[in-house]
């Protein structure tokens, strides 16, 4: 089942998110992540949604989303040129003998440490889902206490 990253432009009004989410739950489509915020036009929001399904399901998802009255545009980025990013905040245990290693990883992945306490670092990392998975696998053995992820956002690339 292929991953699909779908970008929706929707009316920025109450209830719209619930219409989109309701469509997915009602029709049994899954949502891996979902991210919403206003665009430059305050009347319009962008929802970036990651889902999985075969071609027929992806086609239905696109058509069904388009059918919602508050959805202005549906763009399935899968198979097109696009950039995708996700941010995570990772709170990792910072035991004395691990600190240097953590700092090295932060450096290699070009992350930031955004909060420090005697026993923990909180790391901010941005990248593709693969990059996030990679850094997590390195940090996990040191003891990840908490994690918060934004879900993916994406935009199509302009022609060069």
């Amino acid at each position: 089942m292929q991953k699909h990253t779908i970008s929706l432009l929707v009316d920025n009004e109450p209830g719209v998110l619930s219409r989109v989410a309701g469509l997915f739950s009602g029709r049994g489509f899954n949502i891996e992540s979902l991210c919403v915020a206003e665009t430059l036009d305050p009347a319009i929001s962008r929802i970036t949604l990651v889902t999985r399904g075969d071609d027929a399901i992806a086609e239905q998802i696109n058509k069904q989303a388009n059918k919602l009255i508050n959805v202005i545009k549906v763009n399935d980025l899968t198979g097109t040129e696009y950039v995708e990013r996700e941010m995570a905040l990772i709170k990792v245990q910072a035991k004395a003998d691990y600190r240097a290693e953590i700092l090295r990883i932060v450096d290699i992945f070009r992350c930031n440490i955004v909060d420090v306490s005697p026993a923990h670092y909180t790391i901010e990392v941005t990248g593709t889902a693969d990059k996030l998975a990679a850094i997590l696998s390195l940090l996990r053995p040191m003891g990840v206490k908490e994690i918060a992820r934004t879900g993916a956002i994406a935009l199509g690339r302009e022609k060069k």
Binding site: A56, Q60, K63
Partner: peptide
């Protein structure tokens, strides 16, 4: 008239 009806159940 409704594109979602097409190829939903039957290709």
């Amino acid at each position: 008239i409704d594109p979602t009806s097409i190829s939903k159940n039957i290709p």
